[in-house]
Design a protein around this nucleic acid. Structure first.
Lengths: 189, 189, 189, 189
DNA sequence: TAATAATCGAGACGGTACGTCTTGTCTTCGT
DNA sequence: ACGAAGACAAGACGTACCGTCTCGATTATTA
């Protein structure tokens, strides 16, 4: 009971990878706004139609290209102390958002979502931070009996840091992150 | 000791206002992404050059058009209970972000800032939420002796709500807002 | 030994013709000065870039549009008498310059050449009158043994008529044309 | 019976001359096509409105600026031999058209006249070559009994040379000019 | 071993916004 | 009232990118 391959020339894996790599590179080199589909196709050495055949928008390519990395980047080792555990995670989050290419992609997507409803759906569906926040919150739950449902707690944890970065304010220092973690642990008692 | 007027025809206040109104209207009608400077000029009944003479980007116009409204929309009356005080503010914030034109402008600017460094500076300089959060935090400070410095506390208060909206997740309910306020007040003891 | 087609979509003959026709029409309707490349593209139902892709200037389009017509319009039947032969040609030349669309195009190009060195080269290269004057001069050469080299004789023949038209003076009557022809034939004895 | 001066500040002769000089200079520096009224005003250190108040078009300024010189430039000393007389004039005409600023202005105006009916009238009214050709033709009339009416003869004399220059062909050599003069003198016997 | 079919690259197509430029008019102040 | 300065509405400039289309060439499956 095997599915037969459809007739015609199959999709070129080479072309697909070339596009994703081009997007990755260009995001770092020239930024999201300066990227054009024309430019991506040329950089990838690929026909323009080929890009349009498989993706609808810049945002869609970006999502496929970079965002897989997000989950990995935010996996942090458990710590003995709950405050330290949250702080470690928050530091990883700040680094991700401010320095990593995947973080830049995430911010670009979040930005685009504010203008384009289609991207809004895309971003809403793929909650890139959910898995990692859930993991760390699970670890500290024992020490925080009054912690609210996971979605809300995740927002309480990550929201302030994310907003600070998105509004172009200086990212929090280690001390500030620890203070925030402590506030939450205490508030969740 | 009077400053003499510069030579030449003075700037037309009529044209300035027409542009700002046009931007306000178009943001609601067609959204930020679909707005073009050409379109703004035409809608305002103004020459294209006149727009370029006084503003560099869509974002700059939007900022001038909407900043004033933000502060007013987020002024909330004091409440007896500190948790209620914060909750009232948070509800106003959610309404502002999800329903008001000025809130849409704010989100559009925040979005644009993720692509464009120039807008990033613009948004970073004009912290539209700062004044209102500072006001409400001042009122509850007596009941929250361990509250951190105002910038950090403001982020703790508003960040989770803002992030939830920006990531296109359903905005928090009244109960959830109250729970968040309670967590902070307790955490700040 | 066949030349392979270049890659990519081939040039649209339809678009080319539409542009040339539009230019022809507009020259008559609104005149050379009022013609804009934007207007040509719109009238032709063609993208603006398509015009720029194949022509650099209004003048270049005009030249391509009108050159062919010029030669035909100035072919005149041989006459028995050399003076009559020249007179017939001169009459055709006057009509061409003063009434035909191709003649208007020629005058517009000649005008543009006085401002724009690039057009000067264009006009200099394509001597629209050369073929027709050479033909008629060949026919009368037997009756005019002292006729100078063809370029000079052609200028002697056509120059006075052309200048009269270009300087906006009333075009010569049939009698005046015959007188001019007679002067030359006598001078060339 | 004296005419009283009109009320208000009288026209500034300084401004008028500054404009005319600017036009003269710019014609040589950047050419007719590149000249703009804005540019003329700036170069002359004069308000834009001041230019518009006194002249309607570039062509009008040019006419006032340069064309007075034309008549002088084409006054040639009488020669003993009629052929030499005409040849001397023709040489002056070629020099005027190809090298002198006033000649460039004349060609620019003639060019503009092909696009703009208003300039056509301007140029038609002011026959810049008429006076000079009439003078030289008068001198040779005795040796050319069959010379046609002055307008026609003037065109026969100057037309070929003018057309050669306007069509961007190499201007005639001294030998060619002499040959042309000889043809006419013989034709006019 | 064709024939068929969907892919690929390249690049032209009709559109349209960009930011700049010049047009001719207007509105201010200083002479 | 005129002069300079310069803003105004209008609209063309030439460029860039959009998303679609039309080529010849390639690479699979099916007959």
């Amino acid at each position: 009971m095997s599915t037969t391959a459809p007739p015609g020339r199959p999709r070129s894996e080479r072309a697909r990878r070339a596009v994703l790599h081009a997007v990755d590179d260009m995001l770092v080199d020239i930024g999201y706004a300066a990227m054009t589909i024309k430019g991506i196709a040329e950089r990838a050495g690929v026909g323009r139609q080929t890009v349009y055949r498989w993706w609808s928008t810049k945002a869609e390519i970006l999502l496929e290209a970079s965002v897989i990395d997000a989950a990995e980047a935010l996996e942090t080792p458990a710590q003995d102390d709950p405050v330290a555990d949250l702080t470690t995670y928050l530091q990883a989050l700040v680094d991700f958002l401010t320095t990593s290419p995947a973080g830049m992609a995430y911010r670009a997507l979040l930005g685009e979502a504010q203008h384009d409803p289609a991207v809004q759906v895309l971003v809403g569906d793929a909650d890139l931070l959910a898995a990692s926040t859930a993991a760390v919150l699970d670890r500290v739950r024992a020490s925080a009996p009054a912690m609210p449902q996971v979605g809300l707690a995740a927002a309480q944890l990550a929201g302030p840091v994310v907003t600070t970065v998105l509004t172009a304010r200086p990212p929090w220092t280690a001390d500030q992150l620890r203070l925030h973690a402590a506030t939450l642990i205490k508030g969740w008692q």
